[in-house]
């Protein structure tokens, strides 16, 4: 019986990684950096990012993909992950300045990952971004990113793909924000 017990424990330990994992740290993307580096954009401080008051608390903590739980490496909060992603993009573009009079803050409104289907999967992330200049709000807008992709019946194929796609959603959401003409006007020098 000892061998059976050891075997079961070994197999369980091999499968444990599927149960819960943190997504990777955000990496700045060249498209975002180039948008932010344009001379018209000034330096920006990053304020508070939190879950929207009327959003379910679960969406800030976890998304699931076929039984696997994905969590945020930033204080176990996807709103905090969005804030870290914002800082990473601004920092890489040389536009992050904690002392700037222009401050961006955000609220996480939607955070979904649906990869249970046998051939299609999708994800939606929506946030409200606010830009304050000298204390006055000059930009306040909901930005949504929605992606659909071909998935697979096989979990070993579908799950890693869903994790990568989901993580990339933050890059795409921020790209939408950085390309927004009203945002660019609000953050102009």
């Amino acid at each position: 019986m000892r061998l059976v017990t050891i075997g079961v424990l070994l197999v369980c330990s091999l499968l444990e990684g599927c149960a819960s994992q943190r997504i990777g740290a955000h990496q700045a993307a060249i498209d975002n950096v180039q948008l932010l580096r344009q001379p018209g954009i000034g330096t920006i401080a990053v304020g508070e990012f939190k879950l929207a008051p009327d959003a379910p608390s679960q969406i800030d903590k976890v998304v699931t993909v076929r039984g696997s739980r994905l969590t945020s490496p930033s204080n176990d909060s996807f709103a905090a992950y969005l804030r870290e992603s914002m800082i990473a993009e601004l920092n890489t573009a040389g536009k992050y300045d904690p002392a700037s009079t222009v401050t961006i803050s955000g609220q996480l409104l939607q955070n979904e990952l649906n990869a249970a289907g046998i051939s299609k999967a999708d994800s939606t992330i929506e946030a409200k971004f606010s830009v304050a200049r000298g204390g006055a709000i000059v930009f306040d807008k909901r930005i949504e990113e929605k992606q659909t992709w071909d998935s697979s019946f096989i979990g070993a194929v579908a799950i890693p793909e869903a994790i990568n796609r989901y993580t990339e959603m933050y890059t795409k959401l921020l790209h939408r924000l950085f390309a927004d003409e009203e945002f660019r006007a609000a953050t102009a020098k």
Binding site: G24, A25, Q27, A29, I30, T92, P160, E161, N164
Partner: peptide, 19 residues
């Protein structure tokens, strides 16, 4: 030069492998 690096899996950024 400023270095930016992304590892992709089938064209999608793979944050863990990038790290």
């Amino acid at each position: 030069a400023q270095l930016l690096f992304t590892f992709q899996t089938k064209g999608t950024a793979n944050a863990k492998v990038t790290e």
